[in-house]
């Protein structure tokens, strides 16, 4: 476990925990895309199928449980909680996310490490994670206002992706046959999706102005 990967997992954990705490404390999910949260719940469910059959380490198992629990509770809060659900901006969160799910499923059937159910679901979760942020970015463009917690959420997710790329570079040079093309290509695509958000986030932070995304 190298420092980039640990830092990446921690920022990823931070992004979901900050989001869950925000929703739990202020009982509001304004600015958050339910579609993105649902996609993330599917990503974790599809990726962690081997949770009980394949033990990697205590850390790995605990983190998987935390990610599953937090992503599903965020979806539960946004859909079922009597107060929070009223703050959900469903008129703007209209990205048809099944448009993302189907191509990822087809791609996973075509490109995977082994044509078994678990490997196809794993590849599906990798592809879906790459595009899961899309509805959230669309919502941010639509509503054009980014409250700082939503901004922090996307920022932490972007940071986790950048750290994971550093982790892959480190592992590629230190572990002889560490090659995972599927994760690498999907991970780079995902990180690029954040690139423009990062640019506007850092610019607004530098000029100390409210974060505005271009129309």
């Amino acid at each position: 476990m190298n420092v980039f990967r640990l830092a990446g997992d921690m920022t990823h954990l931070l992004s979901v925990v900050v989001l869950l705490l925000k929703i739990h404390t202020i009982k509001s999910c304004a600015g958050i895309s339910l579609k993105t949260q649902e996609l993330y719940a599917v990503v974790f469910a599809a990726r962690y199928l081997d949770l009980f059959v394949h033990f990697v380490s205590l850390y790995n198992t605990v983190m998987k449980l935390v990610f599953l629990a937090s992503s599903f509770s965020i979806v539960w809060y946004m859909k079922r909680h009597k107060i929070v659900r009223r703050t959900y901006d469903k008129d703007h969160d209209t990205f048809r996310h099944y448009v993302l799910v189907l191509p990822c499923l087809l791609l996973a059937l075509l490109i995977n490490e082994k044509f078994t159910f678990r490997e196809v679901m794993w590849a599906f979760s990798i592809y879906l994670e790459a595009v899961a942020i899309f509805p959230q970015l669309v919502l941010l463009q639509r509503t054009r206002n980014i409250d700082n917690l939503t901004g922090q959420y996307v920022f932490f997710l972007g940071a986790y992706r950048v750290l994971y790329i550093l982790n892959w570079i480190y592992r590629y040079f230190t572990e002889p046959h560490f090659v995972h093309w599927i994760s690498w290509v999907a991970g780079i695509v995902q990180t690029l999706l954040y690139a423009d958000f990062f640019y506007y986030y850092i610019m607004s932070w530098k000029n100390n102005v409210k974060l505005e995304l271009p129309a």
Binding site: D9, V56, N60, K64, E113, W122, F178, S183
Partner: peptide, 10 residues
């Protein structure tokens, strides 16, 4: 080290 295609990352 774990065999190659073991998914040890989250």
């Amino acid at each position: 080290a774990a065999p190659d295609n073991v998914k040890d990352e989250l």
